[in-house]
């Protein structure tokens, strides 16, 4: 089954990218791992026929947020402070227990559940647009206001103070 092969490859890509994003000492490598994970996620969206979301994911995350993070890494990089001091050794045991434990509990619960037999609904970009502009119009406008506020706030925070 081609879909199964694609699913397995995308799953490996997503989880491997996430591991690189969290494990790499070099921050540039971590951002590349994040990009890999996000592209894999976009592929998983495509497998579920959420094509608009897949495109939006690539445009916004891989094209926007990841590049923004790269710029932040460039701006905060300094000589004499190696980026290799990746993890805080005192936090590693607690973080490992929490992350692995949470994953183990949730996966075991999921694995014991029976998959639901339900009509699988396809959502096209057209139905998504109709929902966004009719039923969800007010949240849609509110979120655009939020974006504007975040943009202005970020400019205000990051601006050089005049002395």
């Amino acid at each position: 089954m081609p879909a199964d092969i694609a699913f397995a490859m995308l799953g490996v890509m997503t989880i491997g990218g996430a591991l690189v994003a969290v494990g790499a000492g070099n921050l540039y490598r971590a951002v590349l791992g994040l990009m890999l994970c996000l592209v894999g996620m976009a592929g998983l969206f495509l497998l579920q026929r959420a094509d608009f979301l897949a495109v939006a994911q690539v445009l916004i995350y891989v094209g926007g947020v990841a590049v923004l993070i790269v710029f932040a890494v460039i701006l905060t990089e300094r000589e004499g402070e190696p980026l290799a001091a990746a993890v805080n050794p005192r936090m590693v045991p607690a973080a490992l227990i929490l992350g692995a434990g949470l994953t183990a509990v949730l996966v075991s619960v999921l694995w014991r559940s029976t998959p639901a037999e339900s009509p699988v609904a396809d959502v096209t970009a057209r139905t998504l647009a109709e929902a966004l502009l009719n039923r969800y119009l007010v949240p849609f406008e509110a979120v655009s206001l939020l974006l504007l506020a975040a943009l202005v706030g970020a400019l205000l925070i990051a601006k050089e103070k005049e002395s």
Partner: peptide, 21 residues
Amino acid sequence: IATVVFGIGVYGALARRHAIA
């Protein structure tokens, strides 16, 4: 897959030392 990625994210958010990480 979503759960595993979430768990990896939890680990990273707690253990990493750099703010951007």
